[in-house]
Computed example of a mutant assay.
Amino acid sequence: MTDRSKDAPERLYMHVARRLQQSIRLGHYPVNSRLPSEREIADAYGVSRPTIREATIVLELRGLVEMRHRAGVYVIATEPEEVESNLADNVGPFEVTEARRLFEGEAAALAAGTIEQAELTELEDLLSQMAEDELDQSIRERADRDFHLTLARATRNEAIVSVVQTLWDKRYSSPLCAYLFSLAKQIGIQPPVEDHRRILAALQARDPEGARQAMRAHLTRVTESLYRATEHDARERTRLKMDERRHVFARRAGVSEPAE
């Protein structure tokens, strides 16, 4: 069997995660110390802030750090917990979304000149499913995926269809993507219907530049929603820890807490 680690280049976020993990192990960042800000680490490593966010999630999954709401990222251990071995073999969620923004923005522009009425009708039907609050979330998510794949097929370019489908599949096959998108789902982030309406309107108007910009704006908001998901997760864990401390102090003081 081929050793993929020797053949394939290391993912950028995994490279950053490995270097940060090494710094933690060497004591540059002791337990209970705060890591530098995302911007500071990004500047030091010459990478984007989304790459640092992905690296931080890897360290968090390994049990080395913890994101704390409005406080930053703190070291909680110097040796990693055992995690899925295929974590390094998959792209991160911000990488996937950045690639989608590039490919799907151009696909939307191309589709604006080639899309047929039957496909516009199909997109309208899928948009109606995304907007239907009564439908199960999984159905709405599938409608979101089908919307983008239908648009890709409207380009009449099978290579584009294959790329778009592969990028969507990464959302489910990559452990890091699955983890972060599940966080987004937990806090109620839904397929952004208004974004898709703007994309559809540009396609209906046969406006390539409008379709390109609408798609790019949509995927920029997806990136923003992923940031919100990680920040909400940190905030919720901070709240739970405060509640736990409150209960401990109340027990020590012999105070009966009111029923919730």
Rank of each mutant, 00 (worst) to 15 (best):
N157M: 09
L26W: 14
L61T: 05
V91T: 02
P191N: 04
E132M: 11
L219M: 11
V65E: 00
I160H: 02
E40W: 06
S182D: 13
S37I: 11
A250L: 01
G27K: 11
R101L: 05
A259G: 14
A118V: 04
E84Y: 03
I199K: 00
E106T: 03
A154T: 06
L135E: 03
D43L: 04
D195W: 05
A112T: 00
R252T: 02
V255H: 02
R34C: 08
E66I: 05
V73C: 08
T97V: 11
Q129P: 06
T56A: 08
M14E: 12
Y172G: 10
L180A: 08
R216M: 15
G72L: 06
I160S: 04
R245E: 11
P258H: 07
V16P: 00
R18M: 13
L123C: 04
P36F: 00
H232C: 08
E257K: 08
R53D: 06
A99Y: 13
L240E: 09
L151P: 07
V193S: 10
Y45A: 01
D7Q: 12
V31P: 03
D146G: 09
A108P: 01
E119K: 06
A112Q: 01
E194S: 11
G92C: 05
E134M: 15
I189V: 15
P9V: 11
K6R: 14
A234P: 03
E81K: 04
P50W: 00
D233L: 01
L200E: 08
N32V: 07
A143R: 07
K241S: 13
V193T: 15
Y45C: 00
V163P: 05
L226P: 01
R53W: 03
P191Y: 08
R221H: 13
L102H: 07
Q137D: 09
A8L: 15
P208H: 13
Q213L: 14
R239Q: 00
E224R: 14
P191R: 02
M130V: 04
R235F: 03
I187N: 06
F147P: 07
A44Q: 10
R4H: 15
G92A: 06
Q165L: 09
E106C: 05
E257V: 10
D3S: 13
L135H: 04
A178Y: 07
E194I: 10
R221M: 12
R245C: 08
R216I: 15
D89M: 09
V248C: 10
G72T: 00
M215E: 14
V222A: 10
P50R: 02
Y227E: 10
R62K: 08
A17P: 14
V65I: 06
T2Q: 14
H15G: 12
V193P: 11
H218W: 15
E134D: 15
A214S: 15
R197K: 15
D3I: 13
R239G: 01
D133S: 14
H196C: 11
R68M: 00
R251W: 12
L226C: 06
V75H: 01
S138F: 10
V193I: 15
R145F: 12
L126A: 07
D243Q: 13
E132K: 04
T56G: 00
Q190C: 15
P9Q: 10
D7E: 15
A201Y: 07
V161W: 05
V96S: 02
E236M: 03
R228H: 10
V91E: 03
Q129K: 14
A214F: 13
W168E: 09
I139P: 11
